[in-house]
Computed example of a mutant assay.
Amino acid sequence: MTPRPPLAAWEEHLRAGKGLSSNTVRAYTHDVAACLAHLGLEVDCDAETLERRLTTRAIRSWLAAGADAGASRATTARHVASMRAFTAWAHDHDHLASDPGLPLVAARADQHLPQVEDVQGARRLMETARAEAADHDPVIVRDWAILEVIYSSGIRVAELCALDLDCLDRSNGTLRVRGKGGKERTVPLGEPALAALDRWIHRARPALVVGRKNSTLPGSTNALFLGAMGGRIDQRVVRTMIHRACATAGVKDLAPHALRHTAATHMLQGGADLRAVQELLGHASVATTQRYTHVDALRLSTIYRQAHPRA
């Protein structure tokens, strides 16, 4: 029996053994495949070819080519992480006699402050969406509910699209969310988000299912949020909708993740405990959550410069 190519075996290891999300697995394997292509290798090359061609110097040449082409420090850092993970695994599983990724060190990624909207802007975004939903169009009601849920809970767009109807505990006002690595957490929802969900689930969603245009879809789906055709909503639809909603409301152009940033920042500004916000957002490390305190510090610095007589 012909052994599986190292890259294919590693990809299966990431999916089955590490419990990583499909997006993370795709990014890691894409990085390694790009490195192999730079070296003139096929993705299904065997261990012998890999051993001969995949050296520390060769990997560094690929990283340098990416930097010359304009790759950011964050992208380069991810490339290094991908290659180090792959070569360490390949060495442990006897595909490589030594680990060429071990000497690689990436420069620290730039720490950009997250794009956020202020409280007034967020309120305007939600109120505009609520007002538009008054015409009872199922899709517009759905969009209002999505905006309220992301801003209320700070969940990721992938987590939102994966929600099922039974993830909502209406009596306790919470959502059960499956995050990165398959980890589950429970997040609370505010009253505006619960009101929007009630309107969506009990009035608009049934109308969208009955009136769906694609007759090949199953008669029902357990997805909490549906696309216009009646199936589970796609992340791209959510992203496009949020950009459109921001333009309509006349606020900053926010991506779904920026709306999540906004929710986290406003909770911390309101006095929420950092550890509680970490748990709410599903961050593995509190260091990730601490980025939002930098946003608040920037706001305080601005106020200080404006108010202090010797600033």
Rank of each mutant, 00 (worst) to 15 (best):
Q115R: 15
A90I: 05
L96P: 08
D92Y: 01
L96M: 05
D92L: 13
H112L: 14
D110E: 15
Q115N: 10
L96Y: 01
A97F: 02
P114K: 05
Q111P: 03
D110L: 11
L102G: 01
P114T: 03
P100I: 03
V116Y: 05
T87I: 10
H112F: 07
A107V: 12
P100V: 04
V105G: 03
P103Y: 13
D92V: 09
Q115V: 15
L96K: 03
A97E: 14
A90Y: 01
P100K: 09
R108E: 13
L113K: 04
Q115K: 15
H91S: 11
A106W: 00
W89H: 08
L113R: 02
D92R: 14
D94W: 09
T87F: 06
T87E: 06
H93N: 14
D94M: 08
S98N: 06
A107L: 12
H91F: 12
H112T: 11
H93Y: 09
A106T: 04
L96T: 10
Q111C: 06
L102E: 09
L96V: 09
A109L: 09
A88H: 10
P114G: 06
V116A: 01
V116P: 02
G101H: 00
V116G: 05
T87D: 05
A97L: 13
L104R: 06
V105R: 15
D92Q: 12
A106S: 14
V105S: 12
H112M: 11
D92H: 11
L102R: 12
A88N: 10
Q111F: 02
D92C: 07
A88T: 14
D110F: 08
G101I: 00
Q115I: 15
Q111S: 13
R108P: 05
D92T: 10
S98V: 13
H95W: 09
A90W: 01
P103R: 10
A109M: 07
D99H: 01
H95Y: 11
Q115W: 10
G101N: 00
A97S: 13
A106G: 14
A107Y: 06
W89L: 04
A107R: 13
V105E: 13
H95P: 02
H112C: 03
G101T: 00
P103Q: 08
R108C: 03
D99L: 00
V116Q: 03
A106R: 02
L113A: 05
D99Y: 00
A88F: 01
A90F: 04
A107F: 10
D94P: 01
A97R: 09
T87H: 12
P100Q: 10
L104S: 10
V105I: 14
D99F: 00
P103E: 10
R108H: 13
